[in-house]
């Protein structure tokens, strides 16, 4: 039982990171209806900004950790908006395939640039936060895991507030429901889309820093697998659906952790894709999504 709870806990902290990344996919899909392949590399850049910021601030302090997190989020928000402005906006209205290929191109660009400028070899992420292990019954909870869960929950609450309590959040929902109608009632779609990219990228950056705290080895290709899995999480929850992305991320993190702890551990990278395929075949709208039918 303790073993089970421990795995569940580990799974939730991994899932919280997937959820943070998945939110960015789902929000961008909501407003633009396309898969931002480069999102996983924004996550990587977030981890690297965290790495460099982490070497400036004193190690092992709470405020240092906060500064690192905010620096990564701000840097990636700018990066995300830049990518949108330079690569995606000129293609608005172009066929999906072209946009998808552009996204793949941006993704490769970030990865290869990372390999050239950061080097391909993995680096050890500094221990920015004070670290301790708490034992609770038979459970071991590291302070980093706790931070991951707390930060992720806070960010998701913040996102929920932005989306449902602010004017820009309402505009986001309007654009996601019907971009043209939103424009007609005076929403500036460009601003909303740009904001969405910024917001999503900031969340991915937070995910990157949190991921690096727990798995303290970072490299320019570190985003690929978590990125793909977070995307699966977004689809699992229902793409375009914000609570769905959070739910999908948590579920996927838990399932993967349990597979990893079982005799099937070598298949842990395949499990996410198996889930993806099953969900797309049997419930393409996702757990919380609503099915749409093409009008003839």
């Amino acid at each position: 039982m303790a073993e089970f709870l421990q795995q569940l806990l580990n799974g939730l902290s991994l899932g919280a990171i997937y959820a943070l990344i998945a939110l960015g996919y789902t929000m961008v899909y909501g407003v633009l209806r396309f898969i931002n392949f480069a999102h996983s590399d924004v996550f990587m850049v977030g981890a690297f900004i965290g790495y460099f910021a982490g070497r400036i601030v004193p190690e092992g302090t709470l405020w240092g950790g906060l500064v690192v997190l905010l620096a990564a989020m701000a840097g990636c928000a700018v990066l995300g908006m830049l990518i949108e402005r330079l690569a995606y906006r000129p293609l608005r209205g172009a066929p999906t395939l072209n946009v998808l290929i552009t996204a793949i191109g941006v993704s490769l660009l970030l990865e290869y640039s990372g390999q050239v400028f950061f080097g391909a070899a993995p680096r050890t992420f500094p221990a920015i936060l004070p670290s301790a292990n708490f034992t609770l019954g038979g459970l071991v909870l590291s302070s980093n895991q706790l931070v991951v869960i707390v930060v992720a929950v806070l960010l998701m609450i913040g996102l929920e507030l932005i989306v449902h309590r602010t004017k820009i959040g309402m505009a986001m929902r309007a654009v996601s429901l019907n971009p043209r109608a939103a424009q007609l009632v005076g929403v500036n779609n460009d601003v909303v889309i740009s904001f969405t990219f910024g917001l999503g990228s900031a969340l991915a950056a937070a995910g990157g820093v949190l991921y690096a705290l727990n798995y303290p080895s970072i490299d320019p290709l570190m985003g690929v697998m978590p990125g793909l899995k977070a995307f699966v999480a977004a689809i699992l929850g229902g793409i375009g659906n914000i609570p769905g992305a959070a739910l999908g991320g948590l579920l996927l993190g838990v399932v993967e952790t349990f597979v990893n702890g079982s005799q099937w551990s070598t298949y842990k990278d395949a499990i996410a894709f198996a889930i993806l395929i099953v969900i797309l075949l049997f419930r393409p709208a996702g757990l919380l999504g609503r099915a749409t039918v093409e009008k003839v």
Partner: peptide
């Protein structure tokens, strides 16, 4: 047979997923 009723980027992802699964299987 199962995936071709999906469209556009969904199909892209499922085929990508299958490709990765094939890779993991060979690894094992």
């Amino acid at each position: 047979v199962p995936s071709l009723r999906l469209r556009g980027d969904y199909l892209a992802l499922v085929t990508l997923g299958f490709g990765e699964i094939i890779r993991v299987i060979f690894q094992n």
